[in-house]
């Protein structure tokens, strides 16, 4: 069995204890709510998109260390990025979580994972992948709402 140190990296616990970009955004920012029906975790992502760029993002809600730190790191990684860059990052993240296949063709946009690499250990604990991915799917939903 993989050790818990693979899961609870210090940087993850840091984001959990001191989450970045917490809060809400008023309209015209859009929002989306995500639920993990298994554990009751709830997350709300607020996104302000201007000219194809996510100029601001906020996270609210409650959840476990993995879902909360993933949301915090994601918010840092996507803020100020173009929607194309964000799509590429989401794909990279889902590949890391082994829930999407890596495409053969090189990504159109360069992607830096940065702190997010710390979440790599989650994949060894399959039950927790849903926790890590919750905020990402919720972000996609929010961006869909923005373009709708």
């Amino acid at each position: 069995m993989p050790g818990l140190e693979d899961l609870y990296r210090e940087i993850i616990l840091d984001h959990y204890r001191t989450p970045r970009n917490r809060g809400e955004l008023a309209p015209p920012a859009v929002m989306a709510e995500g639920h993990n029906p298994l554990c009751g975790d709830e997350i709300t992502i607020y996104a302000q998109v201007e000219n194809g760029v996510l100029v601001d993002v906020k996270v609210s809600g409650q959840g476990c260390s993995i879902s909360q730190s993933s949301a915090s790191m994601m918010s840092q990684a996507v803020k100020g990025k173009s929607l194309a860059e964000i799509q590429a990052l989401v794909h990279r993240f889902k590949v890391m979580m082994s829930i999407e296949e890596d495409a053969d063709d090189a990504p159109a946009v360069e992607v830096k994972m940065g702190d997010l690499e710390a979440l790599q250990g989650v994949v060894k604990f399959p039950v927790r992948i849903k926790c890590a991915i919750l905020s990402w799917n919720t972000l996609l939903q929010a961006l869909d709402n923005a373009s709708a």
């Binding site: 818990l4 609870y8 009751g40 993995i66 909360q68 926790c131």
Partner: peptide, 25 residues
């Protein structure tokens, strides 16, 4: 400590507990 994390850490000792809303939201 979030229940999901408690459950994960207890599992390290083979202690199996439920974490979640127990279908009683």
């Amino acid at each position: 400590i979030h229940p999901h994390d408690i459950s994960q850490i207890l599992d390290e000792k083979n202690v199996c507990v439920r974490a979640g809303h127990h279908c009683a939201k």
